[in-house]
Nucleic acid binder design. Structure first.
Lengths: 155, 155
DNA sequence: CATATTAGTTTGAAGTTCGAACTAATTAGT
DNA sequence: ACTAATTAGTTCGAACTTCAAACTAATATG
């Protein structure tokens, strides 16, 4: 191994180690920020579910379960909690009355937007001082990770 | 809003939306990869704990609990499981016999290295085709996120 | 029209997490 | 030196999450 290679290795290790802890911390901060707001009764997991339902409006329970990789039973339990707290509503599909379409209530949409704004602020801070070509590189890095995930999953 | 600003906005949204799902998927893949190996009895959470103990050798139970932001009771339960499965050992500190120093067993170290190698491969794929200055930008982005987390936490 | 399939809920068991009470070891105060 | 206070880690019970299997209701199939 020469000096340049060692340097790159050190960079990779730095990035790898950084990434591990950052997400835990983001999760924790998201929850603690939300608990400072008017939405005190929401956990990080519930926030994640509200985010998913907001992003995928009026999807069925089964579809949302598949997206989040939760069992249907688990999702039903989570939905009961969020419905009780007034963040989501279950809409019986009139074409096929077995199907429930999930949607956010007004309160749920407010939470969704607050959460989304926080994410956006995080990304803005992350890319502070980056120019167009830097941002393009970042997008490429994310696409690379998605590809890697896809490859490993397919195997 | 002009055209350039809208484009940047779209980039931010793309990055923000990407990030949300990627980590869930990485967690899931880490667990499923590990279950294909000889370490079938390990969950994603346990893997995370083994990683932390490997990274912070011979730290006390309380220190590890603080790092992972788990209660001491929870950590004790997790350590019991990992000790039973043979991945970690508790070393009574001879200077102060209240203190337990945590360490990986040989088996635990093997798991740690396999997991670390997976992380490294992920980072390598992520940064595929990046030059030295691109990598520097990536590091900067991570430092920016850490700073943001620090600021929000301090408030 | 009976049967099979599908969507979602219920249920019970297993596992996780927390925080308070507890035990054992060490340190501080007098 | 002796008592009290503190500290490290464990135990315990309650609350919550998760899953998978059994179940109910609605729709599709042959």
């Amino acid at each position: 191994m020469n000096a340049i290679s060692d340097e790159i290795k050190a960079d990779y290790n730095f990035i790898s180690d950084s990434l591990v802890d950052i997400y835990d911390q983001i999760m924790r901060i998201e929850e603690s920020e939300i608990k400072k707001s008017r939405f005190k009764d929401i956990t990080a997991k519930e926030l994640h579910l509200v985010h998913t339902i907001g992003l995928h409006d009026r999807k069925t329970t089964s579809e949302v379960a598949r997206i989040l990789r939760l069992s249907k039973g688990t999702l039903t339990a989570n939905l009961n909690n969020l419905e009780r707290k007034g963040y989501i509503s279950r809409l019986t599909n009139q074409q096929d009355r077995r199907i429930i379409n999930l949607a956010l209530t007004d309160k749920g949409r407010l939470l969704y937007r607050a959460h989304y704004a926080f994410h956006r602020k995080l990304v803005e801070q992350c890319l502070k001082g980056f120019n167009g070509s830097d941002i393009k590189k970042m997008k490429q890095a994310l696409v690379n990770v998605e590809d890697f995930i896809g490859e490993v999953s397919a195997k």
